[in-house]
Amino acid sequence: MQTSALVLFVIHALIIGVGGIMAVASRSLVRALVGLIMTLFGVSGMYLLLNAPFIALMQLLIYVGAVVILIFFAIMLTKAPAGGEEERPNQVRTYLLALMAGVLPTFVIGWVVLTDQPASINAPLETGLKALGQGLMEPYFLAFELISVVLLVAMSAAVILAFKRRQSR
C-alpha cells in the first residue's frame, strides 16, 4: 500500500502544482480561477490521503461550491480596464519577488520540519465527526469563534457596499 499511496501523493502534488501554475500564469482571470479550482481539488485529495474525508469534502463544498463561485461572480460583474496593470508584461523584478514569495515559506517550513521532526503515524487515523465537533467546541472554541467574527465582519462590509451601490442608483 505504501507504493500506491506514494503514487497517489505524486498525482495530487502534480494536480496542485499544475493548478497553481495555471492560476498564476494565465492571462485570463477565469482560467486562473480554473487553476485555483484544480489546486483546491488536489488539496482535497491530499486530505483524503491523510484520511480526513470530512475536511476534504468540506474543502470542495466550501471552496469550490461557494468561494470560487463567488469569485467568479465578482469577475463577471467587473470589467478589467483596458490597458490596465494586468495587460503589461511583467518586469524581471516582479518575477524575482514572486519567486521569493514562493521559495521563502518553503524554506521556513522545510527547516522547521527537518529540525523538529514531529512524531508521525504511518497510517493516519480517521477522526470521527463527533470528535471533530467536540474538538471545535471545547479546546479550540476561541479560534472557532474568532473565525466566525472574521466572517461576520466580511459579511457586514459586503452588505454596506451593496447598500451604497443601491443608493447611488
Partner: peptide, 12 residues
C-alpha cells in the same frame, strides 16, 4: 456530504 460537495461543480 460527498453529494453536496460535488453538486457544486454543476454551477461551476
Amino acid at each position: 456530504v460527498l453529494i453536496l460537495a460535488y453538486a457544486g461543480f454543476g454551477v461551476l
